[in-house]
């Protein structure tokens, strides 16, 4: 194969493989979503199911940002920039939940929820 024919073949293969990568990732994401839905009905310990849900959601999240959003192929600065916002957001959520979770901060109007996961946190 000479140089003039090699480039289009490589490009075609690259396009082909990326197409298949995206389709395969979409299938994986669908399967994970299905597992998440089934998981909440299984008779396992709540902490186990909650942990599994968090991990599965994180896997879906990472698949989308690194493949569909091209972070895997882009300069690392894009990843750093996005993760600054993401870490601040996760930190804010964690801090607020911890703050309102402490006994002294419980709203006076609050009642104990008897509904599923939220009753035992």
């Amino acid at each position: 194969m000479d140089a003039t024919t090699a480039t289009p073949v490589v490009e075609a293969n690259s396009a082909h493989s990326k197409f298949h990568t995206f389709v395969q990732i979409a299938m994986v994401l669908s399967v994970i979503t299905g597992i998440e839905i089934v998981l909440v009905y299984l008779p396992f310990a709540k902490w186990l199911i909650v942990s599994a849900l968090v991990v599965l959601s994180a896997v879906k999240f990472l698949f989308v940002i690194f493949y569909f959003m091209h972070l895997r192929w882009d300069k690392v600065f894009c990843t750093i920039l996005f993760f600054i916002g993401l870490v601040l957001a996760i930190g804010t959520v964690a801090a607020l939940l911890a703050l309102f979770g402490s006994e002294a901060s419980t709203p006076l109007t609050s009642q104990i929820s008897h509904l599923g996961f939220f009753a035992n946190v």
Binding site: G85, T92, V93, F100, S110, S113, F118
Partner: peptide, 23 residues
């Protein structure tokens, strides 16, 4: 999008806080 993460982070935590302490 990084700034929008924080925006949605605030909305999600607000929802969760009031689900944890429902009136």
């Amino acid at each position: 999008l990084a700034s929008d993460c924080m925006f949605f982070g605030a909305l999600i935590s607000t929802h969760l806080i009031y689900r944890l302490h429902p009136p």
